[in-house]
Design a protein around this nucleic acid. Structure first.
Lengths: 208, 208
DNA sequence: CCACATTAATGAGTGTAATCATATTTCCAT
DNA sequence: ATGGAAATATGATTACACTCATTAATGTGG
């Protein structure tokens, strides 16, 4: 079953849009980049862009979602982490995500906060993009469940995953501002917070 | 020094805009309310609105900032809280804020997340609105400093205030979704988190 | 190869936030 | 009071994200 010309062309157009966006967003930022400019650079009509991405925000979020998926795949392939404790595990995951997000530093912050929002009161987002983020939350949930099963931490429920997601947001905002070499400040903070949190959970802070 | 006609009129116009916005935002939500509709209801020209508020978001955030100021004043006037421990103190503050935000529940979430952002990479916000939020962070910092001085908690630095701000954001997103009567779920969560955090800090979790 | 169905591309059109040159109002010094 | 300066209001205009009716390209069954 080889892909027909239609599928091929479609993929090519999508890649052209993404390539154009990835040249403009980092250079001019999310807000100063117009969809018109992206279309032009991708050599397509203005309307075509919206056949591929519902909104300009969705286009920017595509990169985030790709990297979130990438992190999940990477983690699955990285058996070494299966034996790591929960703090190491989460540290590795978040650090890896930050590394992957580096090319998007200049614009991803503008839309990241909204991606997190689980309620329509927060933004006029498509359900689809919420679904995609939910996948990542379920992934985190899985990791926490394993740690629970090993007796590493007490049961933290769905709320645990939600909390980690929020923590990740906090780390990301710190990372965006971090001027230190190699973002070492953020990494130190990340390490410290995770160690504290697991220490806290192990010592019965949660079951109280 | 009585205010001249100019100042009076200006204040009247501002109030008219706020009144109109407060009728439309809760009814239709932030996104479905047009600045044109607000102007019309306030009996002013479309452009006049932007003499008073830089952007539509700024207009919505005005209500938040008023309430943040209100919370600070309220806290200052409430001597009872000076002797309360840090958990009670923060609980009272955040609960009070949530109560005050109730009238804006339908639209404040749409802009709240952005107000928090301390970096221009996150949003095209005016510096002014960042300043206003900084005032609140300094207020939180003050409260934490008092608790530090009393030996209630170890020194948590500016980061402590930042963390509380982020925590408040987390609580707010929970609150927006909370369908329980009187938002009691959120209040229970708030109580639990604060008690855990102070317990944690007191037991040397931070100084590690 | 051809009709015709399905899918994708197009760009003029729309709605709306925000701007800006101009007009109007208020203030104040004489 | 009056003229001119400063502040404020105005709404036509702009810029932009996004829509949609139409056109073009591709796939398919006979």
């Amino acid at each position: 079953m080889k892909p027909g010309r239609r599928v091929q062309k479609k993929e090519k157009t999508k890649q052209a849009i993404l390539k154009a966006a990835l040249e403009l967003f980092p250079a001019k930022g999310f807000y100063a980049t117009t969809t018109k400019a992206i279309s032009k650079k991708a050599h397509i009509a203005e309307g075509t862009l919206f056949n591929y991405f519902e909104t300009k925000e969705d286009l920017a979020l595509y990169f985030l979602e790709e990297e979130l998926s990438g992190v999940m795949e990477w983690h699955l392939a990285n058996r070494r982490l299966e034996n790591a404790d929960i703090a190491e595990n989460l540290f590795a995951i978040i650090q890896h995500l930050l590394e992957r997000l580096e090319p998007y530093e200049e614009f991803i912050g503008a839309v990241y906060m909204r991606a997190l929002s689980p309620t329509s009161k927060l933004s006029p987002f498509s359900f689809e993009s919420q679904d995609r983020h939910l996948r990542y939350l379920r992934f985190i949930r899985e990791i926490l469940l394993e740690a629970e099963a090993d007796g590493e931490i007490p049961p933290v429920g769905d709320f645990g995953a939600y909390a980690v997601g929020l923590f990740q947001l906090a780390i990301l905002t710190h990372w965006l501002q971090d001027k230190s070499r190699g973002k070492e400040q953020t990494l130190a903070l990340l390490d410290r917070c995770l160690k504290m949190a697991t220490h806290f959970l192990r010592n019965g802070g949660w079951n109280w």
